[in-house]
Simulated assay, not measured.
Amino acid sequence: MDTTTALFYVFSAVLLLSAFRVITANSPVHSALFLVLSFFSASCIWMLLHAEFLAISLVLVYVGAVMVLFLFVVMMLDINIEVLKQGFWKHFPVAALVGVVIALEMAWVLQRGFNTSVVKPMEGPVGMPNTKLLGIELYTDYLYPLEIAAVLLLVAIISAIALTLRRRKDVRGQNPSEQVKAKKADRLRIVKMDAVREVASVPAAAPAADAAPKGKA
């Protein structure tokens, strides 16, 4: 067994263990941290497969952005994990069976990709980095699918914003079109006033009368 194979088994074991701990950890913060460990392990496996671009993208996009956002959201919401995990072990056998079926289906579909005699390697000059080869392949042979995927993602972003845009009566909002149409005369009015104004004199208060009458001698 060479070093690459040994590292592959080590990172794969860490990946499987951390993925299992994501769904079994008692704290949602610990689950998010185990998910970060899973992404790092998957990135190391991509590096062993000489896919440097995918490895660094996995670290930058998921670990550096998505998981940090998830971690902050989980810490701010203070989720009661005990309520969410009620009946977890009751349904765990069914979930494990579904997971095994999905893993077998993925293995059956992806096993063709591990056959080096079928996969056509990317052609390019000797010594050219893998990232540059991927960029050339992506923006030449797969340019139209890339543009279609970009348009679909843009439509999905606009749809998500439109679905979450709700008018609430208890929140004050701003109308940008009305703000642009505003003029100085509508917002500012100059009023001339005297610099000094006489203050009316206030009469002194009369002394209070005795509440109780004086007794006779």
Rank of each mutant, 00 (worst) to 15 (best):
I45C: 03
L134P: 02
A209Y: 09
A160Q: 02
V14D: 10
V109I: 15
G113L: 14
L71F: 02
Y62G: 01
D2H: 05
P125T: 05
C44N: 06
L77M: 06
A55C: 01
R172Y: 04
F88S: 07
A149W: 07
V74S: 02
I102E: 03
A208Q: 07
A212L: 15
I45R: 00
D170C: 10
I81F: 07
S117N: 14
T4V: 11
A185G: 11
V151L: 04
G215N: 10
S38M: 01
M106P: 04
A204T: 08
A211H: 05
P203Y: 00
V63W: 01
G64N: 02
R21G: 02
V155E: 09
E147C: 11
L104F: 15
D141E: 11
F34C: 04
Y144D: 10
P93D: 03
F92K: 09
L35V: 01
A51M: 10
T164C: 05
V94W: 06
Y139L: 06
A156K: 02
A182I: 05
S41I: 00
P28E: 01
A103D: 04
A149V: 03
F70H: 11
D78Y: 07
K214A: 12
A160N: 03
M122V: 11
Y9P: 08
G124C: 00
I158H: 03
P28K: 02
Q174W: 15
N26C: 07
V126R: 03
W46C: 11
L154P: 01
Q111L: 04
W108N: 12
T5Q: 12
K214E: 11
H91W: 14
L48K: 00
A150S: 06
L7R: 05
E198P: 15
L49S: 10
G113I: 10
A19Y: 00
K181H: 07
A209L: 14
N130A: 15
T5C: 12
Y9A: 15
S12H: 13
L143M: 09
V155S: 09
V109S: 13
A55S: 02
K169N: 09
R197A: 13
R189W: 05
P121S: 06
A149G: 09
V199L: 15
V126H: 03
V101N: 11
I79P: 08
E147N: 07
V101W: 12
